[in-house]
Structures are given as structure tokens and as C-alpha cells.
């Protein structure tokens, strides 16, 4: 019995005007797998993540998540896909969590409201149900005592942990992290990585763009190295980080591991 991967990217390309940012990316991620994407700045890592949940629509290529084809609907003819409207894409997105470099918490809502907002509006949960779930998540990220605070009153590390809880509140089957610790003061990086490690251990499927080589080495099941809009090399952390084959991977690692 062959296991169908949870995520399957098929020759994704993305152009911004004349600028070819993704030049045909294929990637498969199985359920429960943690994939770390490494690569120099501008290599298209963020764009690739944003193509997975269609915040950026790929110029060509397909994104399969579970039995959904993001941005499309299957038809009776197995060879025909129907593009769908923005609201249908929104429903597909609600199954995919995303954590941003700059947290992007809603500043006009409390921590609790940030977390319950989408479950109530999108899933139609009652306030009581949503609040209870949110408090459990805050407990998990160690911030149960800050439920009534506004984002501006929290440190960067706390904000990012709230952002993770907010994404988890939608019970996603896939989580995307775009450099979740890059905007943090060095002493706050650890608390966020700790939460992410626990999620990985709990079996959540995660695609993580990061510059934290230590995290990738310790937590990733697979490391993907991107450069110039393509995947240059991928494999286990031991292979890609410990014994890189491609000269571009070697050059990048020697720069960041210094």
C-alpha cells in the first residue's frame, strides 16, 4: 500500500511581471512530516509557502493538500479541474495554518479574541466553545495568563506564540512557518522554537522556512535547500546539513554556520 502524500506540489512556477521567482518546484510532504526549507534571501522560499495556501496564486502548477486541489474543484471528468472563487479558496485555506515572520496579530483585538476570531466567524463556533479551545491552546503555548492582553503589550516571543495558537485554533492539517523567529531578539528565539518542537513531536505536518540550522538538524525529517527559485538539494538533515553535495548548498551553509 503506497501512502498518498498529504502535500504535493507539482511544477509550481511564479512570475512577478518579468521576474521569474519560482522556476518549477516539485515537493511532496507526507502526513506528520516536518520539512525545513533553507536557502539564501530572495531564493523564493516565502513565495513558495504563500503559493501553497494561494495567498499568492502560482503562475502555473498545482497544489494538492489532502484530497483538495487548492484553488480548484475536481469535476466528473478526472482530467478537468474547475477554478473556484475566492470564498471557496478561503474555505480551503482554513485547513492550512500559517505563521508569519512579523506575527501579524490583530492589534485591535485581545489575545483571546485573536485566537477565537476565525473559529467563530469561519467555523461558526459559539463564544463558549471557541473560548474554551483558545484557553487550552494558550495553556499549550504557556500564555494562559495573558488572554486579556493586547498584542502591543506582549514581547515578540509571546506574540509569535499567540500567532501559533491562533493558527492552531482552526485545527489545520498542515502548518506553514515563514521564518517564525527571524524578527525576534536572540533571547526570545528559544521559547518559540520550543513550542514548535512540541508541535512536531505531536505529529503535526509542518513546512518551516528557517535560518535556524540547529532547529532543522534536530527537528526536521527532511531538509530542502532552495536557490534561485528551484530546489537544489534535499534529504535528511544529516545528508543536507552534515554532508551537502551541491556547491551552492555548501557555500550557503558555510556562511550561516560561521
Amino acid at each position: 500500500m503506497s501512502i498518498q502524500p498529504l502535500v504535493q506540489l507539482e511544477s509550481i512556477t511564479k512570475n512577478f511581471g518579468p521576474n521569474e521567482v519560482l522556476k518549477g518546484v516539485d515537493l511532496e510532504v507526507s502526513s506528520g512530516e516536518v520539512v525545513c526549507i533553507l536557502g539564501p534571501s530572495g531564493s523564493g522560499k516565502s513565495t513558495l509557502l504563500r503559493c501553497i495556501n494561494f495567498i499568492e496564486q502560482p503562475t502555473s502548477g498545482l497544489v494538492f493538500v489532502g484530497d483538495e486541489v487548492i484553488g480548484h474543484r475536481r469535476t466528473e471528468d478526472p482530467e478537468v479541474l474547475q477554478q473556484v472563487h475566492e470564498n471557496a479558496i478561503a474555505r480551503q485555506r482554513s485547513e492550512i495554518g500559517m505563521v508569519f515572520q512579523r506575527f501579524n496579530l490583530f492589534p485591535h483585538m485581545t489575545v483571546l479574541e485573536n485566537i477565537t476570531h476565525a473559529p467563530r466567524l469561519v467555523r461558526g463556533h459559539s463564544a463558549a466553545v471557541a473560548n474554551e479551545a483558545a484557553m487550552a491552546l494558550l495553556e499549550k503555548v504557556g500564555l494562559a495568563d495573558r488572554a486579556a492582553a493586547y498584542p502591543r503589550q506582549l514581547s515578540g516571543g509571546q506574540q509569535q506564540r499567540v500567532a501559533i495558537a491562533r493558527a492552531l485554533a482552526m485545527e489545520p492539517r498542515l502548518m506553514l512557518f515563514d521564518e517564525p523567529t527571524s524578527a525576534l531578539d536572540p533571547e526570545l528565539v528559544g521559547e518559540v522554537l520550543k513550542v514548535m518542537k512540541e508541535l512536531a513531536a505531536g505529529g503535526l505536518t509542518m513546512i518551516v522556512v528557517t535560518h535556524e540550522i540547529g532547529f532543522a538538524r534536530e527537528v526536521a525529517d527532511r531538509v530542502v535547500f532552495m536557490d534561485g527559485g528551484v530546489i537544489v538539494e534535499q534529504g535528511s538533515p544529516a545528508e543536507v546539513i552534515g554532508n551537502p553535495q551541491n556547491p551552492r548548498t555548501r557555500a550557503f551553509l558555510s556562511r550561516v554556520l560561521k
Partner: peptide, 8 residues
């Protein structure tokens, strides 16, 4: 962020 959460 709102989009990524699935808000229309």
C-alpha cells in the same frame, strides 16, 4: 493573516 485563517 486574516486570509490565511480562511476569512472571506
Amino acid at each position: 493573516a486574516a486570509k490565511a485563517l480562511g476569512l472571506p
